[in-house]
Design a protein around this nucleic acid. Sequence first.
DNA 1: TTGTATGCGTTATCAT
DNA 2: ATGATAACGCATACAA
Lengths: 353, 353
Amino acid sequence: MATIRDVAQKAGVSVATVSRVLNGSDAVADQTRARVERVVAKLEYWPHGAAQSLNTSRTHTLGVLLPDLHGQFFSEVIRGLDQGARERGFQILVSSAHADVDTVMTGARAMAGRVDGLIVMAPDQATMAGMKQLAKRFPVILLNPHHPVEGCGMISVANFEGAVDIVGHLIRSGHRSIGIIKGPKGNMDAEERLRGYRHALRKSGLESTPAFEFAGDFSEASGFRAGLEIAHLRVRPTAVFATNDGMATGLLSALQQNGVLVPQGIAVAGFDDIPIAQFLSPGLTTVHVDAFALGKQAVQMLLGALQEENTLVSRHEILPVKLILRQSSQSQLKTVSGPTSRSRAASRPTGGN
Amino acid sequence: MATIRDVAQKAGVSVATVSRVLNGSDAVADQTRARVERVVAKLEYWPHGAAQSLNTSRTHTLGVLLPDLHGQFFSEVIRGLDQGARERGFQILVSSAHADVDTVMTGARAMAGRVDGLIVMAPDQATMAGMKQLAKRFPVILLNPHHPVEGCGMISVANFEGAVDIVGHLIRSGHRSIGIIKGPKGNMDAEERLRGYRHALRKSGLESTPAFEFAGDFSEASGFRAGLEIAHLRVRPTAVFATNDGMATGLLSALQQNGVLVPQGIAVAGFDDIPIAQFLSPGLTTVHVDAFALGKQAVQMLLGALQEENTLVSRHEILPVKLILRQSSQSQLKTVSGPTSRSRAASRPTGGN
DNA sequence: TTGTATGCGTTATCAT
DNA sequence: ATGATAACGCATACAA
């Protein structure tokens, strides 16, 4: 491939002049500019990114460190990141599947000299250890960090508030026996949503019983498993709060396969409002989190920090959430008396309880 | 941050020696190696990626160019790409939302000198123009390209075969009036699936009527719109093939909201087998595409090409697909005589015809 | 307005 | 076994 020297030679000018033309410097004669541009086009010259960043110390790239989670929520965040970046002429360098501190640091290490800043998604308890060290090296934005870190920008979803809201909604709808499907251990979103659930119960004089706190890991399959468990319970809760929509999807599926009607038999609520939530049947009551905005906002914060140094000292923003009411929580509790719902079976009863 | 020179100075050796230690050269005394390693650790020295790639001409990074589409399928492909890459010590540089040739080329241009190769996802008719030019500059892998390009590696999903398969299944189930929800224009997957649909009909002596070919763009919302249209039809097809699962999700939702039972009233089939497909109710009959494997395979092909030059000349692999039968297509056509299904209503009939 | 020369942080070649 | 030094491709301070 042609280098800047090839262009200079063929245009009969110095490399400095070519560089000026390329970078839009005004101090160059129109005539020579035209000549250089012609050669650039003919040679199909593209500047070498690594060489550029080597002496400008700017890469126009943002590093993104992801945990192993997948699903629609994360993919929306990444879309937001990418779009926010491209709007400002940046690209994103991704490294994912980070379980422990070591893999995170290895990923970050490979980004040294290749990124202008770092966005770390959902570092859990285990991976938080490295964040402080990273912050010495790059400007760092933490998304939903397990706890605050000095020197890092942070954006958190209003998990606690959202959980309080949605559980409050279930309580106001008349439910007194409300279960929860928890998320992965050590995960901040999971912990905060659980805390909000317990808080809302306590606030209303209800007790949170361990028997109705079901294990989950944010995957559809884990929601399905919890759903099976619930369907076969002798005494079921009248409502279940799945701490993310993926698990709510699995939960709905398990309940319906076992002849438990939603919302008549059990009300179901989720969290995240992923795109398909409104297309489930029944439509899923959930807490809307604008994942796309979360990504975009993170990029903006990071890019802001790149312009004016030292603006990043432990800045912490909260992304608000919003309750979305759909059919899955519209239970008419008064008309349901027995432990099981009325006898009309679900469309595909494949088992019972 | 510390550079290799700082390390060399503090360790009392030359930069060459430090470089040897870092790159595991054997020609260095144990004693000096230990000394250098100690200094590296103390200074927290991390090599500068851009500088390394400047003279090795290796970046250990793969560029990924994405179209504007999103959804679970794409996010799975990206997971596959990322995991395939990280297993071989590579990272991926992402640039998405490419509508036309110009934005694609701009994205690619920003990757010059920063990547060892390129993976371009689903270039449609409009963006195909630039591929040949890209291939002169990087090793390029095309995923589901609109048409073959000389000099590019290619991996395509067996779209045509899958569509023939699934429509054949509907026909074998007794359906003679089968509709389709089409994908975006110019998109290869969409075109091939449509072609397969028509082929399967023709093969069985059925006619494809324009009236039963509904517009769509692979989004849930477009599937929902098509579903509304179908629900309100005077004469409905007895089965509908949505050309991806996202649209099938929207379709199911619209049908159920309008009191059309699936599969009793209408059988539904999708394409892709995204993770939630099995958790929809009814479970979605679809064509399984291993999106994760697609991504991983693309990386393998690209890395293979990086090792042995010239192995990439128009190599074309096909990713096989597999029919997945679930409840959404289990119609008992014989027992259904009228234009509407039997009287037992859907769980939430909010409208109907 | 243009050219020369230096340096960005590495790796690799060639001496020693 | 180790060190000096020339690239890698570009931007820029300084000279002209």
